[in-house]
Simulated assay, not measured.
Amino acid sequence: MAFHEVRFPTNLSFGAIGGPERRTEIVTMASGFEERNTPWTHARRRFDAGMGLRSLDDLAAVIAFFEARSGQLHGFRWKDWSDHKSCLPSAAPGFEDQVIAIGDGRTRSFALTKAYRSGASTYHRPIAKPVVGSVRAGIGGAQVFPEINYVVDHRIGRITFHEAPDTGAEITAGYEFDVPVRFDTDRIAVSVSSFQAGQVPDIPVIEVRV
Rank of each mutant, 00 (worst) to 15 (best):
F66K: 07
V192S: 14
P180C: 07
G71P: 07
F183M: 08
H154Q: 07
S55F: 01
R182L: 10
A2R: 12
L73R: 12
F161I: 03
I206S: 07
A101E: 08
T24G: 04
L53C: 09
S13R: 01
I171T: 04
G52T: 04
G138D: 00
E176A: 05
Q98F: 10
S31V: 10
D184I: 11
S118L: 14
R155A: 14
D97A: 05
H84M: 08
R182G: 01
N149C: 01
R182K: 15
W81F: 08
V6D: 06
I139L: 11
G198S: 10
F66H: 08
A137I: 06
F76G: 02
P9Y: 04
R158T: 15
P39K: 10
S118P: 03
H162G: 09
P201L: 09
L12S: 08
R77P: 00
D58S: 05
A16G: 03
G18W: 03
V152C: 02
G15Q: 05
G140R: 04
N149H: 12
A169D: 03
A111Y: 01
G105F: 00
T28E: 15
R69W: 05
A92E: 15
S86V: 02
E207R: 11
A197R: 12
R187K: 10
F110W: 03
D80C: 04
V152M: 02
H42Y: 15
T172E: 05
E67G: 01
T10G: 02
T38G: 15
A30R: 12
G15P: 07
I156H: 04
F177A: 07
I26L: 11
A101R: 08
G50Y: 04
E147A: 04
Q98I: 11
I102H: 07
H74S: 02
A43L: 12
D153V: 02
R44H: 11
H74M: 06
G133M: 06
A197K: 12
D58P: 03
S193G: 08
V179M: 10
I139P: 01
V210E: 12
F183A: 09
A120K: 13
A173K: 00
P146A: 06
E21S: 11
G75A: 09
